[in-house]
Amino acid sequence: MTPEEQKAFEDKIYAFKGRKVCEATPAKDPVNATMIRHWAEAMGDTNPAYTNTEWAEKSARGKTIAPPAMLYVWNQQGITAASERASNAQSELVQLFNDYGFTGVLGTNVKQEYFKEAAPGDQVFMEMVIDNISERKNTARGAGYFHETVATFSNQSGEKLGTQSFRVLKFIPQDQPAAAAADDARLEVPTRIPSPRGHDNGWWWEAVDKGKVMIQRCSNCQTLRHPPRPMCGECQSMEWDSVESKLDGEVLSHTELHHPKIPGYQYPLVCAVIKLGEGTNIVSNVVGCEPSDVHIGMRVKGKVEQVDEKNMLPQFYPA
């Protein structure tokens, strides 16, 4: 594209700024309990304010409400969108981008803001405008433009429920493996939170990285200690070595973690205090059985495993 061609193209796309994609249009269905239940199940959201009518009747609201994040759900066209989508300012803009080679598409940001709750029976109206189109940007995906639509939602009484801004990058796909790889690397899957490593514990975690669980031992009085510390509490010696645990253990206590679910951890998740055959206690996970099967006194056998992309950890199985 010459500078002149680019200027002519940009004049065309910037003309879309501020254009309405649609006037306030009612959703096909009113807000309803069925859709709320499907959504809550899919999202794993067990908040009774959304799905438990009996509970909700006794709550401050006196009724169930729709999860605020469902705001954008109600006005979706559904399966017919694939064949019957009417032309509008947004589809014209997308077509224009495509015609000039900006065929790549990447949703980059969604931001919702909530002003009022919606409850079953409410009718949701959506109005949408093309809010902004950026300057030409050179991204790792290729050269392109960000454009942003803003949808405003209201109810049957004309009260504003919330807004959603949606930003999309339209770009010329590049055949640049290096750039693409670098970009993909940024799409990191969350991992468990590793321990920081310092003077007193770094060696222990380095041994785990190599598949071993060590127990610190006082060189002077031979007392084992865990977690590692710089001095022996029995004889105050600072000399120590370590022995490798056989990872034969007994559960002293346990808890199944339900809430909050931390990104990077796989649930169901059971943590336990385990007494090792060598005599020291260690906190770890019990895996390889139903959480409800874990009990105090249970015999377990541990091994060091790669639990995610970044972490090696001891994990204990029913013995």
């Binding site: 468990r192 939170i193 590793p194 321990s195 920081p196 490593r197 514990n201 977690p227 002293l252 206590s253 346990h254 808890t255 973690l257 909050p260 931390i262 951890y265 998740l269 943590c271 336990a272 205090v273 906190v283 770890s284 996970n285 105090i296 639990v307 972490n311 950890l313």
Partner: peptide
């Protein structure tokens, strides 16, 4: 760091471990 990697990282989870026993 002795607890975070296993997911034992909230006050409720620590107290739960005592409570169960």
């Amino acid at each position: 760091g002795w607890y975070m990697p296993y997911g034992l990282l909230t006050p409720a989870s620590w107290v739960a471990m005592f409570t169960q026993r």
